[in-house]
């Protein structure tokens, strides 16, 4: 029972992390119609900048700040220099150009920081574990990630449903041309939305840095899963991104945690483990295929 509780918390934490990534990706898709494979590179840049600044200054908060600003600034620069020209193009061109951006970013980071993985730990005040219920210690840092992610989700909800910017964003998602016709400076809005998405990716990178290894190629690993999330949730929908992130986070964590043990009941141990590991790798993709076949536009389609 306590094992299940711990696994559910793990699933929640992974889901929250995926949401931070998916929110930016889905916003950019919903409003600008851009598939941005380089979103994973912004995540990597956030993680590197945060780890580097933390190691230089010794302060986790300064590192976090560095990660956020690096991702946001570079994200907006990328938007202004390249991606802006892709909004009107078809998805294929977008996939290819941003694929090129990934190759460039990976190599650039490797040249600046070297191939060695970089890592700064969590601050002392977030280290260690607390007992959430007796007998189940859980890392404080992971709890902090869950709290941050839920706060960001609430903040995004308020931003989008209660503010003028949010109104423009919603309008832009459904009637792209109309918003421009109303005299809104659409270019500025686009850059701001892209910057927000990059900021969230940077936040995800900076927060995971102390947990995982900061290394070249880390962006692609999470990128593919993030795409699964937003496709399941419905492209362009923040609500869908949240639902998809939680679903994928839970399915991935729970199949990994329980599938091999379940298979052991019916198969020899070595085969059960190999099959279990293989199946749990495939689980989120199977989930995506099922959802797409059932609802080709995802669970919460943005343009109804």
């Amino acid at each position: 029972m306590t094992l299940l509780l711990e696994q559910l918390l793990n699933g929640l934490q992974f889901g929250v992390m995926l949401f931070l990534m998916a929110a930016g990706l889905t916003l950019v898709f919903g409003i600008m119609g851009l598939i941005n494979l380089a979103h994973g590179s912004l995540y990597m840049i956030g993680a590197y900048a945060a780890a580097w600044a933390t190691l230089q200054t010794g302060s986790f908060l300064l590192g976090l700040l560095a990660g956020l600003s690096a991702a946001a600034v570079l994200g907006m620069a990328l938007e202004a220099a390249i991606l802006r020209r892709l909004y009107a193009r078809d998805h294929l061109d977008q996939v290819l150009a941003t694929f090129g951006v990934i190759l460039f970013c990976n190599e650039a980071v490797a040249m600046i920081f070297g191939r060695q993985p970089l890592m700064a730990g969590p601050p002392p005040w977030l280290s260690g574990a607390v007992e959430i219920v007796p007998g189940v210690p859980y890392p404080v840092y992971r709890l902090a990630i869950i709290a941050t992610g839920l706060l960001v989700a609430a903040g995004l909800y308020v931003l989008i449903s209660r503010t003028r910017i949010g109104m423009l964003v919603r309008a832009g998602a459904t009637h792209r041309e109309l918003v421009g016709a109303l005299g809104v400076r659409i270019g500025l809005l686009y850059t701001a939305v892209f910057g927000l998405g990059a900021l969230l990716a940077g936040l995800a990178g900076a927060l995971t840095g102390p947990l995982l290894a900061v290394q070249v190629g880390m962006g692609e690993r999470i990128l593919i899963t993030t795409f699964v999330v937003i496709v399941i949730g419905g492209l362009g929908s923040i609500r869908g991104a949240l639902a998809g992130a939680m679903l994928v986070g839970m399915v991935d964590t729970l199949t990994r945690g329980f599938l091999p043990a379940t298979l052991r009941a019916v198969l020899p141990a070595s085969e059960a483990d190999a099959l279990g590991a293989g199946l749990s790798s495939m689980a989120v993709f199977i989930l995506m295929a099922i959802v797409l076949l059932w609802r080709p536009r995802g669970l919460f389609p943005a343009h109804a």
């Binding site: 598939i35 996939v95 496709v231 993709f285 995506m288 295929a289 797409l292």
Partner: peptide, 16 residues
């Protein structure tokens, strides 16, 4: 499926 969903579902099967 079609459009972007087609891109993603073909990716999903290839990953499997």
């Amino acid at each position: 499926t079609s459009g972007i969903s087609f891109i993603m579902i073909t990716l999903a099967f290839a990953q499997m």
